[in-house]
Each structure stands twice: as structure tokens, then as C-alpha cells.
């Protein structure tokens, strides 16, 4: 180190700040005069700091993922607790169901209950229907060779879909409950009151001809009725919904706008012959199909 006196050193110390101020002004002017140089200096610094920055953003992402994972674990714990309580509840209901089934069995035994025959059914794939006289009908790839007959009942996964109206050897046409030609006797499950479900080509068929003292209740289940002998009683159809006051409709359980598979049940209603009774007019299905001139014209083409 150069030996300088204390006075000189103090004077030099006082000069540092003004010199640096002048230098910074020089830097400002220089950077304004030569912008590419300043930009290059910036890029050098940024390049040198890039690893540090990437390290920091990586750490930040790690922290974010970890907090997210912790939050997810908390959610899972809550969900687990909820499922545990629900499981306990369901276990209770299972016990109730088992005891009710046993009671039902013992009551049936005591009453000498005649068991219903198990219905035969076939399952077929639905293919889109083009043509035909109905607006809401589907074609099923299962026909008379599989045992499908006219008048059989088609069920979707969770509710009634329609009835078989025409059969071929390998296909059957099913009239859906939403078609305008569909009129079914139904029963309102809460009041056991009869009504008629009338299709109108809309997704929700209307309810008509119900008794005025037992009006359908919003949300009530609608099941089939065995009046006229077309359906067995108690097949689930849908729930009552009021689109406007005094206009109840049925929201079907089956998703009728995109059916993929249908089960066709033969409940064997045709075999049930009522015993002869004086004055009884037998209710037989019309064997002769309706001859439409339009259909024969279409058939030629």
C-alpha cells in the first residue's frame, strides 16, 4: 500500500462520492449513446443469473406442489370420514333390509304365497331407427328367433322404455313411451291412483285422466299398472314433475334419447286366460294388423 498521510487519505475519501456520482452520470449518458452495448451488458447479467432464477422458480413450484398435495390429503381425510359415517349408516340399512327380507319370506310362507314365474328376457343392442310410422321408436337387434314377440315389454337399465310393436326374424321395433301413439295405464305410487300416461313426442310424457281428488304430487314415483293386462304391475317408469300448474308430466328414469341396450321381457301375460264367466267380453289383442295404404306404397319402393 502506498504510504499516504492521514490528511491526504481523508481528502481522497471525500472525493470518492462526487467521483462516483460523475461516473454514474457518465454511465447514463454512455448507455443512452450506445444502446446495443447496454443491452448486451444486460443480457450477460441475465445469462449469469439464469441458473439462480430457474433454481428459485423450481423451488417455488416444488413448494406449490407440496402445499397442493397437503391440501389434497386434507380433502381425502375429510372424504374418508364422510364415507365412514355413510358406511355405518348403510350397514344399519343392510341389517334392516335383511331382517325385512326374512320377515317377508316368513309371511309369504305363512300365507301360502304362489310365487310368480321368473320372466324370460333377452338383451339386444339398439340401432338407430330410420323410417317407420312412429316418431319415437328404436330398432333392436333381436327378433322372433330370439323369442321376442309383439307386446313384450322393453326395459332400459333403470326403467321402462317401451313395448315391442313389430318383429322380424332378427330385429324388433320398440315403441317408446314418449311417442305420440303411446298410451299406457299407470299407477301413482303414493296414492295408488290410476292414470294414463300419454306420449306427445317430447322427452316427458303427460299424465292424464287421473282422479280429481288424488292429484299427482311433485316427485311421486310412477309405475305401470296391470289394468287391461298389457303390463305387469309395478315396473318403474319415472317421477311426476309439474312443468306448469295443472300440467303434470312424467320424467322417465330411462334415458330414452340415447339408449344402447334394452332387455325385452316376456312376462307371459298371453298365457293367462281368465276363466269363463257369464257376460265377460274377452279382451284379446287384435291379431289382424292395420293395413295402411301408405305403408304398402312405401314398401314397394
Amino acid at each position: 500500500m502506498i504510504p499516504v498521510s492521514i490528511q491526504v487519505r481523508q481528502a481522497l475519501g471525500k472525493l470518492v462520492l462526487p467521483l462516483l456520482l460523475l461516473l454514474s452520470i457518465g454511465v447514463i449518458i454512455g448507455a443512452q449513446a450506445d444502446k446495443p452495448l447496454a443491452d448486451r451488458a444486460r443480457m450477460y447479467v441475465a445469462d449469469a443469473l439464469a441458473p439462480l432464477w430457474s433454481l428459485m422458480s423450481g423451488t417455488q413450484e416444488h413448494v406449490l406442489t407440496m402445499t397442493e398435495n397437503l391440501r389434497e390429503a386434507g380433502r381425502l381425510a375429510r372424504e374418508n370420514a364422510r364415507l365412514k359415517t355413510e358406511n355405518e349408516n348403510l350397514r344399519r340399512w343392510y341389517d334392516v333390509a335383511v331382517s325385512l327380507t326374512r320377515e317377508n319370506d316368513s309371511l309369504k310362507t305363512a300365507l301360502h304365497w304362489i310365487p310368480e314365474p321368473a320372466p324370460a328376457f333377452v338383451t339386444g343392442r339398439v340401432v338407430a331407427d330410420s323410417g317407420g310410422i312412429y316418431a319415437r321408436a328404436v330398432l333392436l337387434v333381436a327378433g322372433t328367433e330370439s323369442g321376442v314377440q309383439v307386446g313384450n315389454v322393453a326395459l332400459a337399465a333403470n326403467g321402462l322404455a317401451g313395448r315391442v310393436t313389430e318383429t322380424g326374424a332378427h330385429s324388433a321395433r320398440i315403441l317408446l313411451i314418449t311417442d305420440i301413439a303411446s298410451r299406457l295405464p299407470v299407477m301413482l305410487e303414493a296414492s295408488h291412483a290410476p292414470a294414463i300416461m300419454v306420449g306427445d313426442n317430447s322427452p316427458m310424457p303427460r299424465l292424464m285422466y287421473y282422479a280429481q281428488d288424488t292429484r299427482p304430487i311433485e316427485g311421486e314415483r310412477v309405475v305401470t299398472s296391470d289394468q287391461a293386462g298389457a303390463f305387469p304391475a309395478g315396473l318403474p317408469i319415472g317421477t311426476v314433475h309439474y312443468v306448469s300448474p295443472g300440467r303434470p308430466v312424467v320424467a322417465p328414469f330411462a334415458q330414452l334419447d340415447h339408449l344402447t341396450l334394452l332387455r325385452v321381457f316376456n312376462f307371459g301375460r298371453a298365457q293367462i286366460e281368465p276363466p269363463e264367466a257369464p257376460g265377460h267380453v274377452p279382451l284379446t289383442p287384435q291379431k289382424k294388423s292395420l293395413e295402411l295404404p301408405l305403408k304398402s306404397l312405401l314398401g314397394q319402393g
Binding site: 454514474s24 452520470i25 454511465v27 451488458a41 444486460r42
Partner: peptide, 24 residues
């Protein structure tokens, strides 16, 4: 003072202010 000058210059280089303004 020297550290202040260097830090100001560093800040300008990293940021987008005109070079030297922060140092000044």
C-alpha cells in the same frame, strides 16, 4: 459509496430502467 454504485448498476442491469439512473 463504491458498494452503493455497484449495487445501483446491478439493479439497472437486471431491471429495465435506463442504465445508471438507479446508481445515480
Amino acid at each position: 459509496s463504491l458498494a452503493v454504485f455497484v449495487l445501483g448498476l446491478f439493479m439497472d442491469l437486471v431491471g429495465f430502467a435506463p442504465l445508471g439512473v438507479s446508481a445515480f
